[in-house]
Amino acid sequence: MNAMTIAHMAGVLTSAIQAADRLELDALKGPALADMDLDRIRDIKRDCSTCISLLDLHQPARPARKGATMSDRQFQESKRIALARQGWHCLRCGRNLHDTSVWPGRSGHHRQLRRRADPAVRDLPCNIVELCGSGTTGCHGWAHAHPAEAERFGYIIPSWRAPLSVPIRDWNGDWWWLLDDGTAQRLTQIEIIEWQSTWKEES
């Protein structure tokens, strides 16, 4: 497939996700749909996001910029992994990062801040999430402007904690362990309670 075909297909899938978002929002605001119908809407969104991620894998790779280091390349790869892991949504607010009509940009965020992070884990998938905005705008800007609250929800990690040991809360209120291999594992309710208790004791 050429780049134009991929872009067209991604646009169609993005429109489908936007329509499903509107259906889900209407269902939550108005008379409740049957659980089965809501599940179908969410399945459509998930499947479309998966297809978009697969299309992205067929996009020609960006040439490495002159002088790019191994760390730069790892960061770019971890950003790509984070987008696929998040289904092309901002992890904090859920905004569809393919929707250019309401898109304030997107950027990779180091949970353990770049200047403080252990170089061995700084640019690994467990430490990188994709957020809307930049370091001063959108949810990425929020994380840097509100470090205490961001730390509470796993978006900022102090230097004395390891990213693998700190879960993060997404836009649905679910908590996830972000793993080194680029996957994520949902916390159980017991794990959430234990983590929140630990965070309060150590903070």
Rank of each mutant, 00 (worst) to 15 (best):
R114G: 10
D47I: 12
R40C: 06
T100Q: 13
R111T: 08
D118F: 12
S101L: 05
M70Q: 13
R116N: 11
L55A: 10
A19C: 14
A16T: 12
G94A: 08
C132H: 01
R85D: 04
I17M: 05
P31H: 13
T69L: 10
S53P: 08
D56S: 11
D35G: 15
T14P: 00
Q76A: 08
F75W: 10
T14E: 02
V129T: 01
D26E: 15
C132K: 01
R62P: 01
C93M: 09
H110V: 07
D47V: 13
C51R: 04
R46T: 11
R85Y: 09
D37R: 12
R122M: 08
R122Y: 12
Q112R: 13
L55M: 12
L97A: 07
W88C: 02
P104K: 05
Q18Y: 00
Q59T: 07
V129C: 02
D99L: 03
R111G: 08
Q76R: 13
R122P: 02
R92H: 05
R122N: 07
E130H: 02
L55Q: 08
V129L: 05
V102A: 06
R116P: 04
M70L: 13
A84M: 04
C126K: 04
E24C: 05
I81P: 00
D123S: 09
L28P: 09
R85N: 09
T100S: 14
R95E: 09
G133M: 03
T50E: 03
L97P: 01
P60L: 14
A64R: 05
D56Y: 13
R22A: 10
G67Y: 07
A64I: 08
R65Y: 01
T50L: 07
K45R: 05
Q76F: 00
S78L: 11
L13G: 01
P31V: 15
I44M: 05
A32S: 15
L124D: 01
L91S: 01
R42Y: 11
A32E: 14
L33V: 15
L131D: 00
G30V: 13
D35T: 12
W103H: 09
I81C: 02
